[in-house]
Amino acid sequence: MMSNIFNFELPKFPLDKITLAILDFLTEALAGVTKIASNFIETGVEGLGEGIIAVPTLVVIAVITFVVWKFIGRNLGIFALIGLLVTWNLQLWDATIYTIVLVLLSTILALIVGIPLGIWAALDDRVNKVITPILDFMQTMPPFVYLIPMIPFFGLGTVAAAFATMIFAVPPAIRLTNLGIRQIDKELIEASESFGTTPAQKLLKVQLPLAKPTIMAGINQTIMLALSMVVIAAMIGAGGLGGKVLAALTRFRPGEAFEAGLGVVIVAMLLDRITQNVAGRRRKSPAETE
């Protein structure tokens, strides 16, 4: 008797079909845009990657080491030198360069979208209210899910990987830009306004400079997320170090997997330390440096 009451069939809500329909629509509607973006990224990543690879490896390593040593510090310079030599020795050089280029390009795309959105959300509470749940949603959605819808837009390969990476890596850029501006001491904002600043003057002379450390922390996180996504994006044909890991995995080669994994770690540490260092840099009094 009881079972009769509950024993009816509720048809499944076709969320999957609806999502697909929306995707189809978007693919068609945005075809023009995706084509341009696709060409742009493809030539960007491949041109830049191939350009660097064409230069003798030791020259590239020497240049990177010198720049890091000179502008950041001796220790990180030494680390860059050893790390890059290791990847070269393990014959991962091409993959490493490709991965770094893809990460940086996706990061730039993420920042171009993320920082203005973060500023907008900081200045307008309504925008903040709309954007926050979307960011929560984006950050809890498993990263693999972003991969599939990229294929109908861009096909398999670098461009799909770059866009999936951008979408996955954009939330911290938005969130921390927003936070950085919102957490500025209220009296400083009042001080600025009491002198009659326009909103643009207030933003450029007070809010952004004061939010800079937090925004830089957001950029650091965006880069780290981009790197993790670029590895996963090997599944839709991103190649690079991720491609090596994926290949080793499918053929069950634990040794090769470890080598490629080590390459990822080296790239991660390098990018992390460099961006943290730039972020943590504080202005010294001109009077002190004399």
Partner: peptide, 30 residues
């Protein structure tokens, strides 16, 4: 505001990213 008022705050509200001189010239820079 630019013409009539100068305001001084309890917790000073100096801009930490600007030198003392850059703080003092802020109003005129604006």
């Amino acid at each position: 505001r630019r013409k009539q008022f100068g305001m001084v705050f309890q917790s000073f509200a100096l801009f930490p990213h600007r030198t003392v001189l850059e703080n003092v010239e802020f109003g005129l820079e604006i």
